[in-house]
Design a protein around this nucleic acid. Structure first.
Length: 415
RNA sequence: GUGAGUGUCGCCUAGUGGUCUAAGGCGCCAGGUUGUGGCCCUGGAGAGCGAGGGUUCAAAUCCCUCCACUCACCCCA
């Protein structure tokens, strides 16, 4: 028997209300902030990701689904959404539009990892990107919008963490300070952190091991090493966030896993931080567009994992609205009645009334049982009597009241 | 990639070497008289116990290998 590939999942009808609810809230919020939808391909040239995400990141080193197609092109299933959107921005000359260009997407993301709670090989992310402006008010707006999402879903008890990791001017000095600090403590570090010190020193700061965390807490802070421009940017951002009264907490150990981030980084986490706790995160990537071959273009974005939102909605017991279904069930007795039922179903649907017609030649009892299971509001029953008289029995399934009515009155009564 | 746990009908679960050619609940299907649901009653379909190999007179029950799932690490949404 075939099974869905490891780390993938079927989203069955009973799960769909969560997905449609989240999608709807997202679209609403995006419209409030002036974001427009973009859909980008599921796969891209591998280099788009190796260039942008960073050769040393786990995503590029071990998590990409990459293959050679029949034309000899090296293709990668997108492991994140920002780079493809930036590619589209450049490819279609969107810099000719009023800046910033605000785009959002809801897209499947692919990462070859060992699955666990809240982590899949194919998962779905909502993401938004505001490309073409470096005003810290835009940072504040993106963070505000991210926060609004989770509030609109009805999630509570979330924390909003913020940091600034500087730009390519001031980051090198900071990294030097960081490495100097850690060099003295190298023997106290876990084996992973020893590697990080060489490969990706920023990541030293968010090691989960208790001892490493203690060391990280007293490490030099990126915000103390910002250049004047970055410092002013961060100060102004904090002021805007105050104005918006967002419950923001500065986390000096917050860094993000992708290389392209500059200046502002932020994350949103649920109260009870489980293992895969991050609900969403984002930040500025002021160098990325240039890195991909465009003119220097500042930008900021945010992404969130839809599966993780659903996990939290369930954990918090948030009720989501049911999806609409046909409320009318049509039952029949006899072949002539079945002909009538078939015609009637079509007529009702043409009038915008959702209908489920019985099939086969089941007993009326069985048909009504099905109507009940489907929780139809009304059953329409057609038998030999009704065919002869051009009528129909309309039965209210909640009150069990029923009456015979002329066929042509039915659409009006059901509407 | 590493570590731990789990694996019996669609779902949940009983069964820990021999009346297990596997039991129950939910769900599903059908009946309970003649054209009518939900409650109740009755019956039915549905697994050979993740897969393969061993041990044994005998295995769902013990051992081995593999696979899958779950959780955790790495990392991230």
């Amino acid at each position: 028997m075939y099974r869905a590939p490891r780390g993938t999942a079927d989203i069955l009808p009973e799960e769909q209300p969560y997905w449609r609810y989240i999608e709807r809230e997202m679209v609403n919020v995006c419209q409030l902030y002036g974001y427009e939808r973009i859909d980008v391909p599921v796969f891209e040239d591998i280099q788009l990701f190796t260039r942008s995400v960073g050769e040393e990141t786990d995503i590029v080193k071990k998590e990409m689904y990459t293959f050679e197609d029949r034309g000899g092109n090296i293709i990668t299933l997108r492991p994140e959404g920002t780079a493809p959107v930036c590619r589209a921005y450049l490819e279609h000359g969107l810099h000719n539009l009023p800046q910033p260009v605000k785009l959002y997407y809801i897209a499947a993301i692919f990462r070859y990892e060992r699955p666990q709670a809240g982590r899949y090989r194919q998962h779905y992310q909502f993401g938004c990107e505001a490309i073409g402006d470096d005003d810290p008010a835009l940072d504040a707006e993106v963070i505000d919008m991210a926060w609004k999402f989770f509030m609109s879903f009805g999630l509570r008890g979330l924390s909003l963490n913020l940091n600034s990791i500087g730009c390519k001017q001031c980051r090198p000095q900071y990294l030097t300070a960081l490495k100097d600090y850690y060099a003295d403590r190298i023997q106290e570090l876990c084996s992973d952190c020893k590697m990080r010190l060489k490969r990706n020193p920023l990541r030293l700061l968010d090691c989960k091991k208790l001892l490493c965390q203690q060391i990280a807490n007293s490490a030099p802070r990126s915000v103390d090493h910002l250049c004047p421009q970055c410092n002013e940017h961060f100060d102004r951002l904090k002021r805007y966030l105050d104005l918006l009264a967002l419950p923001c907490v500065i986390d000096h150990c917050l860094v993000r896993g992708l290389d392209y981030y500059t200046r502002t980084v932020f994350e949103i986490q649920p109260e009870e931080a489980g293992a895969q706790s991050t609900l969403g995160g984002g930040g500025r990537y002021d160098d990325l567009i240039e890195e991909l071959g465009g003119k220097p273009t500042p930008a900021i974005g945010f992404a969130t994992g839809i599966e993780r939102i659903i996990v939290n909605l369930k954990k918090q017991g948030v009720a989501v609205p049911a999806l609409p279904r046909p409320q009318v069930f049509i039952a029949y007795v006899g072949d002539e009645a079945k002909d009538e039922a078939t015609k009637l179903s079509s007529t009702l649907r043409r009038n915008g009334i959702g209908v489920i017609e019985a099939l086969g030649s089941k007993s009326l009892k069985a048909q009504l049982r099905q109507a009940n299971t489907l929780s139809a509001h009304h059953a329409v029953i057609i038998g030999e009597q009704e065919v002869k008289t051009g009528t129909v029995i309309l039965r209210d399934m909640t009150t069990a009241q029923q009456k015979t009515i002329p066929l042509n009155q039915l659409p009006g009564l059901l509407r």
